[in-house]
């Protein structure tokens, strides 16, 4: 059994990141966040990584959230705020320009579901249960949940889930659009890999630009978002891959993309 709290493996262009504290339902502790910081940089910087898949070890959970036993251990709130600003883990994850997939089973609560919302695609096993229960502890989500959930599902549904702290099952998560697909538990990683491989047949440059257009565009007035899209579309079309895509289509063959 691997003793690292976060396992990073590469397999043919896919980076598999496993939250590995199954004995505590993969609760995110400081050590795990330290390692996540390293791993996120590694997969962003590694040209061999095209797509990353995040998953939880063990049968019980993707991640049950922040490790509550570490709450209140910061020397002061001033120190806690400084630490958060110095190392913006979730901001960094959101800025990664490669597609990220969360393969969710069991509990995905609090920081667990927030981590999955820092990914671009979420696939859930039928046994998944998702929620932001922080207000039950007189706290609020702090890994982006109050901002990412209203931008992922409708603001009204997000408000209801966050204020009630209610947990929903995989089918409800699918219905509201929090996950894109629900699959049997034993098919979860195969389906995630199929999805990753599908993405890898697309032009990597186009995927990067598409992700940028969607994420940046949400922060912009519509006219500026459309201008950003037009600029990125022109760049994509003028790239080597863009020309190859057109050529391959004309010649009726599969394109060979190089990411330039």
């Amino acid at each position: 059994m691997d003793s690292r709290v976060l396992i990073y493996e590469k397999d043919g262009g896919i980076a598999w990141v496993t939250l590995n504290r199954p004995e505590v339902l993969n609760a995110l502790n400081m050590e795990m966040r330290d390692e996540l910081w390293q791993v996120l940089h590694a997969l962003q910087d590694d040209p061999d990584v095209a797509v990353a898949i995040f998953k939880g070890a063990g049968e019980g959970a993707f991640s049950a959230g922040a490790d509550i036993s570490e709450f209140g251990t910061a020397p002061s709130v001033v120190e806690a705020r400084r630490a958060r600003r110095e190392r913006d883990l979730w901001g960094y994850m959101l800025a990664i320009d490669k597609p990220l997939i969360a393969a969710i089973h069991g509990f995905a609560l609090g920081a667990g579901v927030e981590l999955s919302m820092c990914c671009d695609l979420r696939i859930a096993a039928e046994d998944a249960r998702l929620g932001l229960p922080e207000v039950s502890l007189a706290y609020i989500p702090s890994a982006g949940g109050t901002q990412l959930l209203p931008r992922t599902v409708s603001p009204g549904l997000a408000m209801g889930l966050i204020l009630s702290g209610d947990t929903i099952d995989a089918q409800e998560a699918l219905r509201i659009g929090l996950v894109q697909r629900v699959v049997p538990r034993q098919r979860l990683y195969a389906e995630a890999e199929t999805l990753a491989r599908q993405l890898m047949t697309r032009g990597p440059l186009a995927l990067r630009y598409a992700k940028e257009a969607v994420t940046q565009g949400l922060d912009l007035p519509l006219a500026e978002g459309l201008a950003l899209e037009a600029r990125l579309a022109r760049l994509a079309l003028a790239s080597r891959d863009g020309r190859e895509g057109l050529r391959a289509q004309r010649e009726g063959r599969a394109p060979q993309f190089l990411g330039v």
Binding site: V135, S136, A138, P150, I162, S164, D219
Partner: peptide, 23 residues
């Protein structure tokens, strides 16, 4: 039954945050 201050802050975070850039 939830923490009342947390519920107020959560409501504020969701409703005010939507008018801000994500950062």
């Amino acid at each position: 039954a939830r923490g009342p201050i947390a519920v107020r802050y959560a409501k504020e975070a969701v409703s005010k945050g939507l008018d801000m850039t994500l950062e």
